[in-house]
Amino acid sequence: MIKVVVAGALGKMGQESCKAVLNAEGMELVGAMDCKEFHGSIGSFLGKPEVNIQISNNIEQVLLELKPDVLIDFTRPGVVQENIELALKHGVRPVIGTTGMAASEIEGFIKSASEKKIGGLIVPNFAIGALLMIKFATEAAKYFPNVEIIELHHDQKMDAPSGTALKTAESIASVRGNMSQGMPSEFEKIDGARGGDFEGMKIHSIRLPGFVAHQEVIFGGTGQTLSIRHDSIARESFMPGLILAVRKVMSLDHMVYGLENILFE
Rank of each mutant, 00 (worst) to 15 (best):
Met201Arg: 07
Ile243Phe: 02
Leu152Cys: 13
Lys248Phe: 02
Glu139Pro: 01
Ser41Met: 10
His230Tyr: 13
Phe238Lys: 01
Ala24Glu: 10
Val5Ser: 02
Ile228Phe: 02
Ser41Glu: 08
Cys35Pro: 01
Glu260Asn: 10
Thr99Cys: 12
Ser41Tyr: 09
Ala127Phe: 06
Ser162Glu: 04
Thr98Trp: 05
Ser114Tyr: 10
Ile203Val: 15
Gly177Val: 05
Ile228Leu: 15
Asn23Lys: 14
Gln215Ser: 06
Lys111Trp: 04
Asn83Phe: 07
Gln224Leu: 13
Lys111Gly: 02
Ile150Asn: 11
Gly195Ile: 10
Gly210Phe: 06
Gly177Lys: 06
Gly129Trp: 00
Gln181Trp: 07
Lys19Asp: 05
Pro161Lys: 03
Ser205Gln: 04
Lys111Ile: 07
Val21Thr: 08
Gln181Lys: 07
Gln215Asn: 05
Ala213Thr: 05
Phe198Asn: 04
Gln156Leu: 14
Cys18Phe: 06
Thr138Ser: 08
Lys12Val: 13
Gly26Met: 07
Ile262Arg: 05
Ile243Trp: 03
Ala127Ile: 02
Val4His: 05
Leu166Lys: 07
Glu236Ile: 14
Ala165Ser: 14
Phe144Tyr: 15
Phe219Arg: 05
Met250Cys: 10
Ile96Pro: 00
Leu10Gln: 08
Glu236Asp: 12
Asn125Cys: 14
Tyr257Asp: 08
Val5Asn: 01
Gly200Gln: 07
Thr222His: 12
Gly31Phe: 03
Arg229Trp: 03
Ser237Gly: 00
Met133Asn: 12
Ile243Ala: 01
Ile55Ser: 03
Ala9Cys: 15
Asp253Met: 04
Val246Gln: 00
Lys248Ile: 09
Gly8Met: 06
His230Thr: 13
Asp197Asn: 15
Asp159Pro: 01
Leu46Gly: 02
Pro49Val: 07
Pro145Thr: 09
Met183Phe: 13
Ile72Gly: 01
Asn146Pro: 00
Pro161His: 04
Thr225Asn: 11
Ser237Pro: 01
Thr98Lys: 01
Gly47Ala: 11
Ala137Phe: 02
Asp155His: 13
Gly163Val: 02
Ala20Ile: 07
Glu60Cys: 09
Val123Glu: 06
Glu216His: 08
Val80Ser: 09
Val95Glu: 00
Glu199Lys: 15
Met179Cys: 09
Gly108Asn: 12
Ala234Arg: 13
Leu71Pro: 00
Ala127His: 08
Met158Cys: 03
Glu60Gln: 14
